[in-house]
Design a protein around this nucleic acid. Sequence first.
DNA 1: GTAATAGTGTCTATCAGACACTATTCA
DNA 2: TGAATAGTGTCTGATAGACACTATTAC
Lengths: 235, 235
Amino acid sequence: MVEAMSNPEDIHPRPIVSVDLAIFALTQDGLEVLLTKRGAEPFVGSWALPGGWIHVDEDRDLETAAQRVLTDKTGVATPYFEQVGVFGNTTRDPRGWSLSVTYMALITQNAVIPTQGGNVTDVAWHSISDEATMASLAFDHTAILKAAVTRLRNKVEYTTLPVHLLPEAFTLSELQTVYERLLGRVLDKSAFRKRMAEVDFIEPLAGKMRRGSNRPAQLYQLKQARSTAFFDRTI
Amino acid sequence: MVEAMSNPEDIHPRPIVSVDLAIFALTQDGLEVLLTKRGAEPFVGSWALPGGWIHVDEDRDLETAAQRVLTDKTGVATPYFEQVGVFGNTTRDPRGWSLSVTYMALITQNAVIPTQGGNVTDVAWHSISDEATMASLAFDHTAILKAAVTRLRNKVEYTTLPVHLLPEAFTLSELQTVYERLLGRVLDKSAFRKRMAEVDFIEPLAGKMRRGSNRPAQLYQLKQARSTAFFDRTI
DNA sequence: GTAATAGTGTCTATCAGACACTATTCA
DNA sequence: TGAATAGTGTCTGATAGACACTATTAC
C-alpha cells in the first residue's frame, strides 16, 4: 500500500500540516500559557496556540519549524522543547483534513518579548486555570493544550523537567517552590534535596550565592543543557 | 504567521504525510517486529515499517488511518495502539519534505495473518536483535523503530503494557515471563504478584484454569480493554 | 539579640526484596 | 510417591517521610 505511484499527490491529496506550540511559564499566579489571537479565518478573534505552517523550502526538520515559530512569537531561542504529539482528523480545521504537530516549551516568563505579526492581533499569557479562555480556543486547541498540560503535570512527578521553568541560575529552595506550585502540595525540604541529589543533574555555581536578609543560598545551574533526568520513584 | 492565505497550499507546499507502524510481538526468540519488503522506489527491496498514506477522503482521523494500515497488513483489528511520535525533515524521503506519523502496536503473534498487497513483495517478522536488518531499513525507519523499541522498553519498567503481548486469557506466571523476557532479567514471583495486585488491572476468569502436568493456574484477563496502569515504582 | 531562610542530621514505621514454605495437579 | 509449577507467608535490611536541629545572613 506504500507509495503506489511515483507521483502520489495526484492520487492521495495531502493533508494540511501545521506546527503548534504550548509555551509554558510559571508566575505568581500559577502556570501560564502563551496564546495568540487569530486575525484571520477560520476562528477569527479566538485565542489559539501559536503556530504556523511548515516552510518546506526553509525548515530543515520539524524541530527547526517549531523553533522558528517559537522565536517568531517570543524572541526566545533555546528553551526546553518536547514533542507532545500529532493531532489530525477531517474536522478540526474547516479548510480540510489537517494535522497539527504539537510541541511544548518551558521558559522563564521574563525572558520573553511577545511579538505580534502575521495574522495575529494579540499575543498574551493566560493562566491555565482560566477555564473560560481554555475552553474556547480555536480549532481543537482546547484538547491539545489539555494533553500538553497533562503531559507536563505527569512529568513533574518523576522528572527534573520543572527546572526549565527557572532562569539559568537558581537556588534549591526556588526549585522546590516550582515543584510545589506545579504539584499543588508542599514537599519536605530534606526529602526533596535527597531526591535532587540522587539524579545528578545540577551543579553549584562556585562562590555564587542568592543574597537576602537571611542566610545566603547556593546558586545552581543545569549540568547539561536540555537534559532531563528521571527519578526511579515518584516525588 | 498562521494561515496567511485562504488558499495556503498555493504559498506553502504541503509535505508528504505517511502513517507508519511498529507492530511488536513476543516469541520464543524475543521481541519481533513486522516488516514489509518494498516493491517500489524509493528503497526498492529494502525492509520497511508497514505504512501508508492518509486517505483524506476515507480516514476520519489519524488513528483510523493507522488502524486501516494495521488491518491491511495483519488482519488484526484492535490491539494495543499508541502514538510514538512524528518524524519529519527534508531528507528522509527523496521525493521531498516528508513526515511520518508513527504508531506502535502490541499483538499476539499467532493472531496475525500477514497479508501482502500493494507495492509490497514480502511481509515477515524480524527479531529486533537482528542488527543487520534493523540497521538497513528504508527511509529513517531504523531510527524510528529504535525510538519505538526504547519507548516500549521504558514502559515495561513502570506500566502494565506488556500484558498486550499475551492472548486474552493468561496466567500470572505467563505474564511474569513476558516481563522477564522484555527486561532481560528474572523477577521475584512474590514481589511481581504484589506489584500486579497493587494496580488493579486484571481479573481472574472464574473457574478457568490453565492445565498441565502440575498444579493448574488461574487464568486472568484485562479488566478494561486497552487501559494501561502505571506503577508508582519501577518494577 | 531577633527574624528569616539555608542546609543537615536523626529516628522510626514501613515495605521491597529475598527466600522459604505450602498447595495442587499429573504420572 | 516424585516432579513440576502455582501460589502464599515471613523475615530483615534499607529507606522515605516526618521532624528537629544547626548555620548564616540582615537588621
